Simulated scan of single mutants.
Amino acid sequence: MSKVISTVCLLLLSNSFMTLAWYGHLKFFAKDSNHSSTPLWTIILVSWGLAFFEYCFQVPANRIGSSDFGGPFTLVQLKVIQEVITLIVFMIFSALFFKNVQFTMNHLIGFCFLVVAVYFIFKK
């Protein structure tokens, strides 16, 4: 598998765990759930446990993808890829788990500007 595909796949996995760790508790430990009385410290520990897996994918993704280690991406390019993947994963996650989230034209325009940013970051 190429370093580009490996890097992107690992970043997708990493961001899936990150999104679940950061926002999953808002759904799975919600006020109207059976777990609404779960102590905050328990929720933090669960989130840290999920974040561990985020790092298990994020660190190799950055090492494989980094031009400093023979990969195809500069540090800035890696960061931009990661941010775009974060937004894509977040949009999918919130559409699946948070039915009250509405994406507006402003969101679409903002995401288009991010795509334009990616273009300029990768332009030689």
Rank of each mutant, 00 (worst) to 15 (best):
K3T: 03
S6E: 06
V8T: 07
C9P: 00
L10E: 03
L10T: 00
L12T: 03
S16W: 02
F17M: 07
F17A: 07
F17R: 12
M18R: 15
T19N: 12
T19F: 01
L20N: 01
L20E: 01
H25F: 11
K27N: 09
F28Y: 14
A30R: 06
K31D: 15
D32T: 11
S36G: 06
P39G: 08
T42V: 15
I43R: 05
I43M: 06
L45W: 12
S47P: 03
W48I: 08
L50I: 05
L50E: 04
L50R: 10
A51T: 14
E54M: 08
F57I: 03
Q58R: 12
P60F: 07
A61Y: 00
P72M: 03
T74W: 07
V76M: 10
Q77V: 03
L78T: 00
E83Q: 12
L87M: 10
V89R: 04
V89Y: 06
L96T: 07
F97E: 02
F98G: 02
N100E: 12
Q102M: 06
F103W: 11
H107V: 01
I109F: 15
G110I: 00
C112T: 15
V115H: 10
V115A: 15
V118H: 06
Y119C: 05
Y119T: 06
I121E: 10
